[in-house]
Design a protein around this nucleic acid. Structure first.
Lengths: 214, 214
DNA sequence: GATTTAAATTACCGATCGGTAGATAAATTG
DNA sequence: CAATTTATCTACCGATCGGTAATTTAAATC
C-alpha cells in the first residue's frame, strides 16, 4: 500500500528544478570552459544565489562534474542514440555524424563540445575529469563496437576493419567535428563530406539499401 | 659594405632569449589552458618578472597568441612537416599520424595539443583565437591537399575521394588524437590502428611500395 | 667617460576570484 | 497551530586575479 513516492523527510523539501538549473550551469561551462566560468557568471546564468549553488551541487569542481554528466546524458550521447536508433548501419553512421554536427553548431548554444573541448582542456590539471573522459570514451566505443559486431555476425559488414576500429573512427570524427566547430566552421562545412565519411566507416554509401545483402 | 646586422637603435638592446622564454609560456598555456594559466604561474615558468612580460609580449591575450604561433611553428606543424618530407604517400600519412601521436604524448610535456584542446576552448570567448585557429586549419588543409593532388596527377592516387577530403580526414585524425591523449590515452593506444587509418586515407597500406604503379 | 635609451625590478593597484558564516523564509510533520 | 527542518538569501571573508607606476640597472652611442 506504499505510495510510489517515499515519505518526505520532515523539513522543507527542495523547490528548485535541479536538472533545469544544472543545465544552465552546463551551458556556461560549455561556453567558457572550467576556469573561464566564474562563480558569478555561473550563478547569474543559473538564477540561484551562491550559497544555494554550494548546498545543492557542492563546490565548483563538483558542479563541473555534474555538468559533465548532465551534458553526457543529453548532447553528449545524442549521436550514439541516433546511431542505435537506425536499422541500417550506413544510415546509423550517417545519423551519428549528422547529430554530432548539429549538436556542435546549435544556434544560440556554445559551439563544439563540452567534453571534447572544455573538459579535455581541464583534464590536464583535474584527474577526476580526465578519468571520467576516459570512461565516457570507453563506454561510447563499446556501444558502437557492439553494434558493428552485430552487423558483422549478421553478414552485413565485413570483419575488417574490426568493430572497435570502426567505433574509434567514428568517435574520432565526432571529436574532430567539435574542435572544428569551435574554430568557427559552419554546420554545412562539418557536413560537407558526410557521405564519404560514412563510406570510410562502413565501406559503402549510406543510402544504399544493403540490409538484404545476406 | 653594410654588415648583415643593422645598426643597433641606441639604448640597451634586449638580453632575454625571447623564443626560449616564450616556449616556457607556451608550455604553461598548453598544460593549464588560457584561463587556467595565471600570470604568476606564467612568470614563474618563464623566469621573468611581470613587467618584463608585459613590455616584451604585451598582455595575457597577446602572450597567448604569441604562444599559439610559437606552438604552431614547432609542435603544431611537426606532423605536416613529417608528411611533406616523405616520398611515398602512404608513408607520409603514416608519418603524419605517428608524429602527431608522439607530440600528443611527449613525456614531461603536457598531453594533447595546445591548438586542438586549449585554444579551441578559449576560442568561444576570444574571436582572435577562433579566427587564428580557422586560418591554421585552412593552411594545413591546403598544404596536405596540394600533396594529395600531386599524387593524383602523378597517377599514384585515385581521384576519389578528393584531395581536400583526404586532407580533412587526416586533420580530423590529428584533432581526435589530441583529445584522446588529453583524456589519458597512451601513445601506444593512439598508434593502435595506424595502418588501418593510413589505408582509410590513401586506400592502401603504407608499407606497400606503390610508386611504380603508374 | 658622459649621455642616452631601454630592459628589468620592486612594490603596489582596484577588481574579482572561489568560498562561507549567520540570518531569513518556507514547507513539511505532529 | 506549533514545532521542526531545511532551502535560500544578504553580506562578507582572505586570497589571488590581471595589470601598472616609479625606480633601478645595464648596454649601447657619441
Amino acid at each position: 500500500m506504499s505510495e510510489k513516492s517515499e515519505r518526505l523527510p520532515r523539513g522543507r523539501p527542495r523547490s528548485i528544478d535541479r536538472a533545469a538549473v544544472l543545465a544552465r550551469a552546463t551551458e556556461t561551462f560549455w561556453r567558457l570552459g572550467y576556469e573561464g566560468a566564474s562563480l558569478s557568471e555561473l550563478t547569474a546564468a543559473m538564477g540561484v544565489s551562491r550559497p544555494t549553488l554550494y548546498t545543492a551541487y557542492g563546490d565548483k569542481a563538483d558542479l563541473f562534474m555534474a555538468a559533465l554528466e548532465q551534458y553526457g546524458g543529453t548532447y553528449g550521447t545524442a549521436p550514439l542514440r541516433a546511431f542505435l536508433a537506425e536499422a541500417e548501419i550506413g544510415t546509423a553512421v550517417s545519423a551519428f555524424l549528422r547529430i554530432a554536427a548539429e549538436g556542435n553548431t546549435t544556434p544560440g548554444m556554445p559551439t563544439g563540445c563540452l567534453i571534447a573541448c572544455c573538459a579535455s582542456t581541464a583534464a590536464e590539471s583535474q584527474p577526476a575529469v580526465r578519468d571520467r573522459l576516459a570512461e565516457i570514451a570507453e563506454q561510447t566505443a563499446a556501444a558502437l563496437a557492439e553494434r558493428f559486431s552485430t552487423e558483422v555476425t549478421a553478414g552485413r559488414l565485413s570483419a575488417e576493419p574490426g568493430p572497435f576500429v570502426r567505433a574509434q573512427r567514428l568517435i574520432d570524427m565526432m571529436y574532430a567535428q567539435a574542435v572544428r566547430a569551435r574554430s568557427g566552421e559552419t554546420r554545412a562545412s562539418l557536413m560537407a563530406d558526410l557521405a564519404s565519411r560514412v563510406t570510410a566507416v562502413v565501406g559503402r554509401p549510406a543510402d544504399v539499401a544493403a540490409v538484404k545483402t545476406v
